[in-house]
Computed example of a mutant assay.
Amino acid sequence: MGSDVEIIARIEDWTGEKITGTQSIGGGCIANARRVKTESGRSFFLKSGFDNSMFRNEANGLKELAKAEAVRVPEVLLQGDDFLLLEFIPQGGRKRNFFEDFGRQFAQMHRYQADQFGFYEDNYIGATPQINIPVGDEATNWTSFYMNKRLLFQFRLAERNGYADGKLRSGFRKLEEKIEDILAGSEEPPTLIHGDLWSGNYMSDENGEPVIIDPAVYYGHREADLAMTKLFGGFSSEFYSAYREESPLPDGYEYRENIYLLYHVMNHLNLFGSSYYGQAVRLLQSYF
Results as ranks from 00 to 15, higher is better:
residue 115 D to P: 00
residue 219 Y to F: 15
residue 234 G to A: 11
residue 112 Y to L: 10
residue 3 S to Q: 04
residue 137 D to S: 13
residue 54 M to Y: 09
residue 279 Q to G: 04
residue 120 Y to E: 09
residue 146 Y to G: 01
residue 241 S to Q: 14
residue 274 S to M: 04
residue 169 R to C: 05
residue 3 S to M: 06
residue 149 K to S: 08
residue 51 D to A: 14
residue 257 E to H: 03
residue 282 R to D: 12
residue 79 Q to R: 12
residue 114 A to T: 00
residue 11 I to R: 08
residue 263 Y to W: 05
residue 124 Y to G: 01
residue 69 E to T: 12
residue 78 L to R: 10
residue 122 D to H: 15
residue 160 R to E: 12
residue 286 S to H: 09
residue 74 P to K: 13
residue 28 G to A: 15
residue 282 R to E: 13
residue 27 G to L: 10
residue 104 R to Y: 00
residue 168 L to Q: 08
residue 114 A to V: 00
residue 20 T to I: 14
residue 181 D to Q: 11
residue 107 A to S: 09
residue 142 W to L: 04
residue 21 G to S: 12
residue 56 R to I: 07
residue 162 G to L: 02
residue 107 A to L: 07
residue 184 A to H: 08
residue 237 S to Q: 13
residue 208 G to L: 03
residue 77 L to C: 03
residue 106 F to R: 01
residue 204 S to D: 06
residue 87 E to S: 12
residue 116 Q to M: 08
residue 78 L to K: 07
residue 270 N to F: 05
residue 286 S to I: 05
residue 19 I to F: 04
residue 161 N to E: 11
residue 150 R to I: 01
residue 110 H to E: 04
residue 94 R to N: 00
residue 238 E to T: 10
residue 72 R to F: 03
residue 169 R to L: 06
residue 100 E to Q: 13
residue 35 R to C: 13
residue 45 F to I: 04
residue 246 E to V: 00
residue 8 I to V: 15
residue 103 G to I: 01
residue 207 N to I: 00
residue 154 Q to K: 07
residue 203 M to T: 11
residue 177 E to I: 02
residue 13 D to R: 14
residue 127 A to R: 11
residue 204 S to W: 03
residue 273 G to L: 02
residue 11 I to N: 06
residue 174 K to G: 14
residue 151 L to K: 00
residue 184 A to K: 14
residue 46 L to T: 05
residue 7 I to L: 10
residue 28 G to L: 08
residue 37 K to S: 11
residue 234 G to Q: 09
residue 242 A to H: 08
residue 121 E to L: 12
residue 288 F to D: 10
residue 224 A to H: 07
residue 143 T to P: 01
residue 60 N to R: 15
residue 251 D to N: 10
residue 253 Y to Q: 06
residue 72 R to D: 06
residue 210 P to T: 09
residue 257 E to C: 00
residue 98 F to D: 00
residue 177 E to D: 13
residue 30 I to K: 04
residue 207 N to R: 12
residue 31 A to G: 12
residue 119 F to I: 03
residue 2 G to K: 14
residue 26 G to Q: 14
residue 82 D to H: 13
residue 30 I to D: 06
residue 155 F to A: 01
residue 259 I to T: 11
residue 160 R to P: 00
residue 287 Y to K: 06
residue 79 Q to F: 07
residue 132 N to M: 07
residue 225 D to N: 07
residue 135 V to I: 12
residue 51 D to V: 02
residue 22 T to D: 00
residue 48 S to H: 13
residue 93 G to T: 06
residue 54 M to W: 08
residue 183 L to K: 04
residue 69 E to F: 12
residue 140 T to N: 13
residue 94 R to K: 14
residue 231 L to T: 06
residue 259 I to Y: 02
residue 205 D to W: 05
residue 208 G to V: 03
residue 75 E to F: 04
residue 97 N to Q: 08
residue 72 R to T: 06
residue 115 D to S: 14
residue 255 Y to M: 12
residue 221 H to I: 01
residue 109 M to E: 07
residue 24 S to K: 11
residue 73 V to P: 06
residue 148 N to P: 00
residue 178 K to M: 07
residue 167 K to S: 11
residue 210 P to N: 05
residue 55 F to K: 11
residue 174 K to E: 15
residue 37 K to A: 11
residue 5 V to K: 15
residue 49 G to H: 04
residue 274 S to P: 00
